[in-house]
């Protein structure tokens, strides 16, 4: 099974090299045209998943993490594209991290009914926070599960960043 995943991963990266990576067409990356953007996907082995599950007390759904490294005039940062189930449907976030702090947190896709999405200003509260400052983000009325899901992903991104994978 692991071997198969590796093969798929290699195949996938070759494929994307051949064509252009569609994720790079996202508005976020288009805005940073002057930066050098490199695709650095992570394949998580069982060991790192176990550590994560123990530290964060949640299961990891996917073994492949979509990650990009940005070098903007020497300023290095990592960009994670993460998805998480809110209740039945998923939301996908773009989380940019540098120096173990969140720099940007954008919603790329929100598939639950729109009324459960938190306002943009709320998502903005994550900016500049580090791992230990995630737990006390304000509650949002009517969007409790969205709040949990967003906090999970923020924690996940900061965890992966801290492990230097």
């Amino acid at each position: 099974m692991e071997l198969l995943t590796y093969i798929l991963l290699i195949f996938f990266s070759l494929q994307v090299k051949a064509s252009e990576d569609p994720i790079l067409r996202l508005e976020f990356f288009q805005k940073h045209e002057d930066c050098i953007i490199e695709r650095k996907y992570i394949y998580l082995d069982r060991e790192i998943k176990t550590i994560y599950e123990r530290e964060i007390n949640q299961a990891f759904e996917s073994s492949i993490i979509k990650r990009y490294q940005m070098n903007c005039l020497g300023q290095i940062s990592k960009v994670y594209i993460l998805s998480d189930r809110v209740r039945s449907h998923y939301q996908t976030l773009l989380i940019q991290i540098s120096k173990e702090r969140i720099q940007v947190l954008e919603v790329l896709k929100f598939s639950e009914p729109q009324k459960y999405q938190a306002p943009k200003s709320w998502y903005h509260k994550f900016v500049t926070r580090s791992d230990s400052e995630i737990f006390n983000i304000d509650a949002v009325t009517g969007a409790t599960l969205t709040r949990y899901s967003t906090m999970r992903m923020a924690k996940k991104a900061l965890f992966l960043e801290s492990k230097n994978l």
Binding site: S83, R85, S88, H89, Y90, K109, S111
Partner: peptide, 23 residues
């Protein structure tokens, strides 16, 4: 549908389009 019906999209997984109807 919830456990096995996910659809892969460019940006990541998406729940099965029939899940809402089944629920």
């Amino acid at each position: 549908l919830r456990e096995w019906g996910n659809v892969e999209t460019l940006l990541g997984p998406e729940a099965n389009p029939f899940l809402t109807h089944a629920q």
